[in-house]
């Protein structure tokens, strides 16, 4: 639902198991960001440092896949509050770079990192309840919630973000031109 006072579109963004590269690419729309801000307000996002989503958010942009329990909770919070959920970038869509660990059993990953690798003193697997538990495999987000749109790329270019959001703002079904998502 658009913001009733301002009729601005509310957008929330987050980075799950991602590298923030997608967010950086979003910022590459440069001075168009000012134009954007005339039409949208940011809800929960690294741009605002708001920690939880408001009741009615129009668009949720998710960078990164799911590598731990907290990622799942965050993703679900987004799904529960946003009208349109968007998987942004290769990690959100396919698991991407973090999913390269899927070839190695989680037990071996943890043992190698915390117990046996060279240079470790007081070997111990961190078990503080503050720390999110790792999932046994890194998953793309559409395996856990319904996703409405996918913006491909690693990262998607600034143009892709711009096209997608301007289409939405104009009330059009977003259509990303082939040239913007064709990589070879």
């Amino acid at each position: 639902m658009t913001d009733l006072m301002t009729h601005k579109i509310r957008i929330a963004t987050t980075s799950l198991a991602g590298c923030f590269g997608c967010h950086m690419s979003f910022l590459d729309i440069d001075e168009r960001f000012f134009t954007l801000c005339e039409h949208v307000v940011f809800d929960r996002s690294p741009f605002t440092d708001i920690k939880h989503l408001g009741e009615h958010v129009d668009v949720g942009l998710i960078e990164g896949g799911l590598c731990n329990a907290e990622n799942v909770s965050t993703l679900r919070e987004f799904r529960d509050h946003v009208k349109i959920l968007v998987a942004v970038g290769a990690c959100a869509i396919n698991g991407g770079i973090p999913a390269m660990r899927n070839h190695i059993p989680l037990k071996e990953c943890l043992e190698e990192s915390y117990l046996v690798a060279v240079g470790i003193d007081s070997p111990q697997i961190p078990n503080d309840p503050e720390l999110p538990l790792l999932l046994d495999r890194v998953r793309p987000i559409h395996e856990v919630v319904k996703v409405d749109y996918f913006l491909p790329g690693c990262p998607p270019s600034a143009e892709v973000f711009w096209t997608f959001l301007t289409d939405l703002m104009a009330g059009r079904e977003p259509q990303i031109p082939e040239a913007q998502i064709h990589f070879d």
């Binding site: 329990a69 799942v72 989680l106 037990k107 697997i125 309840p129 999110p132 538990l133 046994d136 495999r137």
Partner: peptide, 24 residues
Amino acid sequence: GFDLDGALEVSRQMTGREDAHAHL
């Protein structure tokens, strides 16, 4: 399409955790 809580089982075993955040 998969057992989400089961995906945390290895982590639970290795950390010995059973708190609320250790389940989905």
